[in-house]
């Protein structure tokens, strides 16, 4: 392991930083994307709020639809529909220590799988993946399952999150409080 190289940076075999996603093989790209999604999952599971917030671009959208998977969040109710500034408020609220539903925090472990690249452009790509999340809190144990969609952007050699849609499979039904980062 080379301590001087940040593992977050996308590099070619010769060590040069990647400037265009299309310059990577699909195999390499799939590996880098997977690493990024796993990292996001870990930051969420461990409540590393600041590091998680830093993954987002300024034009970010974080969306958890309700009542199906193809609603229009601009016109219909969603469980969560945050722009960048609202993501910031969400994180700040969690950090007050008085977000009661996360005090004590949920214990979490999630698995991200079925990672499939959907489309790749020079600086952005779309990817889908499944997430299964085990949550334990004062109420009890809850299992969440979602089909997720992401848009990642290459910024200064590393991935950032532009868009994340968390498609809870049971989003048309009553669901428990969802106050951890999903």
């Amino acid at each position: 392991m080379t301590a001087t190289h940040s593992l977050s940076l996308l590099r070619h075999a010769d060590g040069r930083t990647v400037e265009q996603l299309t310059a990577l093989s699909l195999l390499d790209l799939h590996h880098h994307v997977s690493q990024f999604l796993f990292k996001e999952a870990r930051l969420q599971d461990t409540h590393a709020y600041d590091d998680w917030e830093a993954l987002w671009t300024d034009d970010a959208t974080y969306w958890v639809p309700a009542n199906g998977h193809d609603t229009d969040p601009e016109l219909q109710m969603s469980i969560l529909y945050d722009n960048r500034s609202r993501i910031g408020i969400r994180v700040k609220q969690l950090k007050t220590g008085r977000r009661h539903t996360q005090t004590p925090r949920s214990e979490l472990a999630r698995t991200i799988s079925n990672i499939e690249l959907v489309s790749v452009a020079d600086h952005e790509l779309d990817v889908i993946a499944n997430a299964v999340i085990f949550e334990d809190n004062m109420r009890g144990e809850t299992i969440w399952a979602a089909r997720n969609e992401y848009r990642l952007r290459l910024v200064d050699g590393a991935f950032k999150l532009v868009r994340k849609k968390v498609g809870l499979v049971n989003n048309h039904k009553p669901i428990f409080t969802l106050s951890f980062l999903v």
Binding site: E74, L75, L80, Y81, I89, T101, R139, T177, L178
Partner: peptide
Amino acid sequence: NRRLRQQTMGSVGPAGFLLADDTEMYER
């Protein structure tokens, strides 16, 4: 209406800034 929807999505429901905490109190 647009503003009413945006504020509602922020405050209530399972992930709401307000209602998730009210609901925590109900369960306690």
